[in-house]
Simulated scan of single mutants.
Amino acid sequence: MDKQIQALTEWLNGKAGQTLKIEKKENEDTDVVHFELEEIGERPQDNPVDDYLERALLLRGAGSILNADGEKVPVPGDSYEIVLNDLEIGSRSEDRLELKNDRAAYILTVA
């Protein structure tokens, strides 16, 4: 397993049973999700030729996102995914982790 992915997996496993605040910045847009992490899993890349489903970590649990009106709405399904392509971990502490991939930048904090 890639060292970056292993470090992310270990950090997340240590947060199981806790609520994470996930700030995702993508294309000049920022989403904020509060997610009660139960466990993590991994989705392998479905088709290496066309990248239809990229390899991702799946955070399983329940969460909510703030919509444009400032209202909390449930995250669809029971998972949140972080694509692992070109994953880089930035600063890291016990309660905060910064990372980015080829799509977005994330800041994960224990809420």
Rank of each mutant, 00 (worst) to 15 (best):
Q4A: 15
Q4F: 09
A7Q: 14
L8T: 07
T9K: 12
E10N: 15
N13F: 03
N13Y: 03
K15L: 07
G17A: 05
G17S: 05
L20M: 03
I22L: 14
K24E: 04
K25L: 13
K25Q: 13
E26H: 08
E28L: 10
D29M: 08
T30R: 07
V32F: 06
V32M: 10
V32Q: 11
V32R: 09
E36I: 02
L37E: 03
L37S: 05
E38D: 09
E39Q: 15
E39N: 15
I40H: 07
E42L: 14
E42R: 15
E42K: 15
Q45T: 08
D46M: 11
N47L: 02
P48H: 07
L53A: 13
R55T: 09
R55F: 04
L59P: 06
A62E: 13
G63W: 06
S64Q: 10
L66I: 13
N67F: 08
N67P: 06
G70N: 09
G70D: 05
E71G: 03
E71D: 15
E71W: 05
K72Y: 08
V73T: 15
V73P: 03
P74N: 04
P74Y: 01
V75A: 05
G77F: 05
D78P: 01
D78H: 10
D78Q: 11
S79Q: 12
Y80E: 00
Y80C: 01
E81D: 12
V83G: 07
E88Y: 01
G90I: 02
S91R: 12
S93Y: 04
E94H: 07
D95W: 00
R96C: 09
L97F: 01
L97W: 00
E98D: 13
L99H: 04
K100I: 00
K100D: 00
D102N: 12
R103F: 15
R103S: 11
R103Q: 14
R103D: 11
A104I: 00
A105S: 14
Y106H: 11
Y106E: 09
I107C: 14
I107R: 12
I107N: 09
L108H: 02
L108G: 03
L108S: 04
L108Q: 05
V110Y: 05
